[in-house]
Design a protein around this nucleic acid. Structure first.
Lengths: 365, 365
DNA sequence: TTGAAAGCGGTACCAT
DNA sequence: ATGGTACCGCTTTCAA
């Protein structure tokens, strides 16, 4: 079949090929190798050599503008798309990166992923997803697979900045960027600016006239908990107190019970370490007849929309801009993969305030 | 550098190479091309031809067992890993599949992804993640990118079985499998068995002695809502009534308010269309002093753990086995990619009951 | 302005 | 039992 095809096209060489012949050739070839048109097919159809086609499509080399245009038009007509594997073999660039994560639940990873993918798709880069739980063996398998597939770089993401993934990513032949997980000191790591976010939240409570502030948060062994707590403390001043616990609604409930039964002065502003705790706090307050936001302002952290929006009243909270963080991480691996230099170290990206109704203020409607 | 290296190794040909030389060669080569050792390097180091190396490592062709072992040992020593791009170029198999999803929030997609990745990593297959929101242009870009990268197949996942992704996946040169999204009738589609799940839930309520049953669920235009409702109706018999609404906590609240103010006989068992609704129902009941599970049993759907476990009391619910669904979808594309035939059509995978405390019964502790 | 040929890193067939 | 060689699809000198 290939032979007959050759004779056919050689008769109609030099651009006199009609559209009908193109279609036929296209169909014939497609059938032959599963729908893929190669540059050779295109060259035959266009009546030029493969090198000319290559140069025409990549806008390099010099040639008659008319020839280039004709080849491009034909390429579009027969739906030619270059094989990225072959191209990658030559260029040592696969336009592929690997995303390693241990965040199975995905509350943090998903927005980050979306940002990465979003930033990279414009550059023709695809993302391998590797969920490794906390299994070092699985991690190694995935890393090896990625390297075999010649990824241009790797992004490692996790749930907290003070723990590292259970795989060793040092000394890899490709750049590695970390997001929300501890990375090597000579590489770039992204995280949210916990201190700034906590300061933002606390300042908002103060701006609304709240003075007796409490911070109900997660386990003290999280570095982000400590950073937020310390920013809260310095922003809240004398009146502020911090209660450490766990990342759950029930802890929010319990903390409210503790506070209200302690007999001291009651808080009028509560900054919670995450939206789950805030949800528990708001529910507990409602159950004791304390009005939110009239009597007490409550502010969360994470802007976990599905939770924040369904809380009664909807939660004012801090958003860590995870998608943006993902974008930056994506652009960073890309830059490193292309050899552009970057300053190693930890980069803290600013958080933003999302105003709903649990604090009162701007949008109490 | 390469030249010197060649001379060095040719002196020590035929397997007399010491470990020290191997290391040196390894390092030299690594530096030369970014940490990657090729089969040619290995061949030189082992003092054999590339074809012999290839056969040795792939366990085909015949050769002295000792030679094979020696080559394998050296490969391991110098950390040789075949370039998957080159391999894929020859075999037309990239050991890569694409995962297309519009489930940005990821509650459904994540477990499915985990299952797919889990099933495929054992087969050396990696997964491209493509989040396309509901943007047809973005979808096309991702599909084209995947095809360029010669994926062996595509899995399309979504949030509901009665809507399709905003991208045309028909006539692609690779097999496409659908999960939780509408697919072409000549391809394989996986979904949870909504009717079976609903029947399971209803039967559980009946088994616990509940007789006045209500089903509070989502919008009637979801086919899964209708399937669950109809299975509920036939299992519940005369006593059962269905209330359609939206997928939110607030709807759960409101439905309870409606029921309790309607003045009719009050239900003693409520089957909710998802865990969010169930959460709203449970909260609303508690607020009106109705005891769960003593007075009313409530059962959810989805087993969204973070929500189900934090509800007071924790929700008994239906789990759609999404991870298993992902596994099956993964194995299915793999099978199709390898040319193994499969019966096209819709495959409904069974749901399972997860007993917590909101219904009473087995684990009321 | 265009084309032939080498080569990226492997695999497979056919000699030896 | 082992090696030479062609080739997968594309890019890139270098000649014509």
């Amino acid at each position: 079949m290939r032979k007959g095809f050759l004779i056919l096209t050689s008769v109609v060489r030099k651009g006199f090929l009609t559209c009908i012949f193109v279609k036929e050739a296209d169909l014939t070839t497609q059938r032959a190798r599963g729908g893929r048109v190669t540059i050779h097919d295109l060259a035959r159809v266009a009546g030029v050599s493969v090198s000319t086609v290559s140069k025409a499509l990549n806008d390099n080399g010099r040639m008659a503008a008319e020839t280039r245009a004709r080849i491009k038009r034909m390429a579009a007509e027969i739906g030619f798309r270059p094989n990225a594997l072959a191209r990658g073999l030559l260029s040592s660039r696969s336009f592929t990166i690997g995303l390693l994560t241990n965040d199975t639940y995905g509350r943090f990873t998903l927005p980050v992923m979306a940002g990465i993918s979003d930033a990279l798709v414009d550059h023709g880069v695809s993302v391998f997803l590797c969920a490794i739980e906390d299994d070092p063996a699985l991690g190694k398998v995935h890393v090896d697979a990625m390297l075999d597939k010649q990824v241009d770089g790797i992004i490692a993401t996790g749930k907290r900045i003070d723990r590292s993934l259970p795989v060793d990513l040092a000394g890899l032949p490709v750049p590695v960027v970390y997001a929300f997980t501890a990375g090597a000191s000579d590489s770039v790591t992204f995280t949210a600016d916990d201190a700034q976010g906590a300061a933002l939240a606390t300042a908002w409570l103060k701006k609304l006239g709240r003075r007796r502030l409490v911070h109900i948060t997660g386990p003290e062994d999280f570095v982000s908990v400590r950073e937020r707590a310390s920013a809260f403390a310095s922003e809240a001043g004398e009146g502020g107190s911090v209660r450490y616990g766990v990342w759950s609604e029930s802890w929010g409930h319990q903390a409210v019970a503790d506070l209200w039964s302690a007999g001291g002065p009651l808080p009028d502003g509560i900054f919670c370490g995450n939206d789950q705790i805030a949800r528990g706090v708001v529910d507990a307050l409602r159950e004791r007849g304390v009005k939110v936001p009239e009597d007490v302002s409550v502010i969360g952290f994470d802007n976990w929309e599905i939770l924040a929006e369904q809380t009664r009243p909807p939660l004012t909270t801090i958003d860590m801009n995870l998608k943006e963080l993902g974008r930056e991480a994506g652009l960073m691996v890309l830059a490193l993969a292309e050899g552009r230099p970057a300053e190693p170290g930890l980069r803290k990206l600013p958080c933003k305030l999302v105003v709903r109704q649990s604090c009162g203020g701007a949008q109490t409607n």
